[in-house]
């Protein structure tokens, strides 16, 4: 038996909206630690890793580990039937082929119950090695979203070069219209951590990435006020959105090679 009660349906809506365009179906792995998910996009260039720790739910019950194969697009549509502040309760029996979703209004005067069919998903689980990154940049998530949008839509760029030095982080593109760059400097004051740009750097690093993936990752912006970019030469970029202290959505993106 699995049961997880989330105070706000809104969080699950935001998570699904953040990942459903990149991966359309995935296995939700349920264990006593919480709910996790890992999935690659169809071209095997990027990977999503989700963790919702059990302490983010009240209650959370998992008698034995379960793998729930879910069509994320369908689940996102179903979640739209919940109001943002509805209490979400997910339940599944062991060996069940359905996941039950219950939405309860805060005043407890409306109860919606849905049964979602599960599917068998044959997915590869990838081992992600622990990495010491050359540079970790934390910035407001809205700023990251804005930069990705502007460099994509404004210049028509396909690839973005991200160069991190002590001075700051520079995003450059060359596109159909011309070329451009946006540089963010480290902010002096850290009074408001969510509004700061903080660079933790062991050595300068420059990498090239497909901009359209970064724009897709930015759909997770509503999940967190800040985002971190972790970069090392010759390894995938990690874009992480933390959900308070109860979990994260991480996106991994393979770099491009300069010819």
């Amino acid at each position: 038996m699995f049961e997880a009660r989330l105070a706000q349906s809104n969080l699950m809506k935001k998570i699904l909206d953040a990942i459903k365009d990149l991966i359309t179906e995935a296995n939700l792995e349920i264990s006593s630690g919480g709910i996790s998910l890992q999935g690659m996009d169809s071209s095997h260039v990027s990977l999503v890793a989700l963790l919702m720790r059990s302490d983010g739910f009240s209650p959370f019950r998992c008698d034995r580990n379960l793998t729930l194969g879910v069509n994320l697009q369908a689940m996102a549509k179903l979640m739209k039937c919940a109001s943002n502040d509805d209490i979400l309760t997910m339940t599944a029996e062991d060996n069940s082929d359905t996941l039950n979703l219950q939405f309860e209004s805060p005043a407890q005067d409306k109860l919606s119950e849905f049964e979602m069919k599960l599917m068998d998903i044959d997915s590869e689980h990838l081992g992600i090695p622990e990495t010491e990154y050359d540079a970790v940049i934390r910035m407001p998530s809205s700023e990251f979203q804005r930069i990705c949008r502007d460099l994509g839509a404004g210049i028509g760029g396909e690839s973005v070069t991200i160069a991190c030095t002590k001075e700051g982080v520079k995003f450059s593109v060359t596109g159909s219209v011309g070329s451009g760059s946006i540089t963010l400097k480290q902010t002096g004051s850290v009074d408001k951590p969510a509004e700061s740009v903080v660079i933790n750097m062991a050595q300068p690093v420059t990498l090239i990435f497909a901009l359209r993936y970064l724009n897709s990752f930015a759909k997770a912006t509503p999940l967190s006020e800040s985002v971190s970019l972790s970069m090392s030469r010759e390894v995938p970029l990690v874009v992480e959105y933390k959900m308070n202290d109860t979990g994260y959505v991480r996106f991994y993106l393979a770099p491009k090679l300069e010819d």
Partner: peptide, 14 residues
């Protein structure tokens, strides 16, 4: 032009 790397060349299936 730059060439897109595949994620599977970095992470192994477990």
């Amino acid at each position: 032009k730059s060439q897109q790397r595949n994620l599977l060349s970095f992470f192994k299936a477990v």
